[in-house]
Write a protein that binds this DNA or RNA. Structure first.
Lengths: 190, 190
DNA sequence: CCCATTGTAGACAGACCTGTCTACTTGGGC
DNA sequence: GCCCAAGTAGACAGGTCTGTCTACAATGGG
């Protein structure tokens, strides 16, 4: 994120309150469905304050994605470590995410789908996000010449699972298919 | 779709012109970004005519997805046949789609991501769409007890490739990863 | 001590959104 | 010949959106 993590608890700064509400609403309801007035009300901030920090809604959208990126990457690293840190940690980590009651897919995929090329930064940030996630995944795979390609395939399969888990009743089918793909990839000698 | 396919060429009925414009705009720009006024102007129809056919925008969204489903499934069956009809037809068919200059991802994934649970029919239609696509894919796989599970995994990997191809500059990386996954799955004895 | 920074409350402009309504035209079946 | 279904053009209502602006309060560093 943009701020030093200190001084976050007692009275969070206006900017962080705005960002927090924006994250909540943008992720839950979508970008265009969420008006800035709503974010302003939810974060208990004045309109002028809002526009001082984020001169336009687009600036807030970009900040939202950067905030999300930092939070999510932190979660991923933590979850992979908690589940043992090897390639076997991937599936339980993903499952933990999918079973979160607030789960509504990948913020980046959703935003690209909604805004498309309207806001080019969105595409750039998304690409960067997926690249970094792929590298974190690569780090838990057994070392080999093909490690990066393998991680790319696994990351892409996870993207598939992400969207499936978003419209299926339960994430089980997506998780089973993902498990099959990962096992198969790791077992295949190329 | 809803109408007999006859009487489509000379002067397309108002309904089909609306649906055509809606498909164009919804897919290209997104649902909420597209006002009905714009669809009405583009399809050269009167406002009252529009609202006679689609009493609310939500009705049009549902009709759009059904229209898209019929068109896309037709294309898929055709493309798989054109590329030989076996499991080797999957990758070139997907590539053909990704390289379409108007490609902007999966209409269903994008719509679910944008509208979420706001319009429950969207989720139901999407699930149906993916199920039917999976079955068409299963039909080109070698017969085996595991055929359906295999098709589910491949369909999910394709979903991953769909979103990757949506924000990458070129679809090549997504296609390479998809190729790797499909080969690996088909080679693995379970 | 003073003034820049950051904050609050809320009215307002102007655009755009969905959906309704009036008034008129046209063409095919009974 | 007549009438109804389906079409056209476009004004209008009521709501929501982004972004601007006025007026005022607290606070801390030079």
């Amino acid at each position: 994120m943009t701020r030093p993590a200190i001084s976050d608890s007692p009275s969070p700064t206006a900017r962080s309150r705005i960002l927090h509400s924006a994250h909540d609403l943008f992720y839950r309801e979508g970008i265009r469905a969420t008006g800035v007035d709503r974010i302003i009300a939810e974060s208990g901030v004045a309109k002028l304050t809002f526009y001082r920090h984020f001169p336009s809604k687009n600036d807030l959208i970009v900040a939202y994605l950067e905030y999300r990126h930092a939070r999510w990457m932190g979660w991923l690293a933590d979850a992979l470590a908690r589940y043992g840190g090897g390639s076997g940690a991937i599936l339980p980590a993903v499952e933990e995410w999918f079973r979160d009651p607030h789960y509504r897919g990948c913020a980046f995929i959703n935003t690209v789908g909604e805004l498309g090329a309207t806001l080019p930064e969105v595409v750039a940030i998304t690409r960067r996000h997926k690249d970094e996630a792929t590298q974190v995944l690569a780090a838990v795979l057994p070392a080999s010449k093909q490690r990066l390609e393998l991680a790319q395939a696994i990351a892409m399969a996870i993207d598939g699972a992400i969207v499936r888990a978003q419209f299926d009743h339960a994430p089980d089918a997506a998780l089973a298919a993902l498990d099959r793909i990962i096992r198969s990839l790791l077992a295949t000698k190329t």
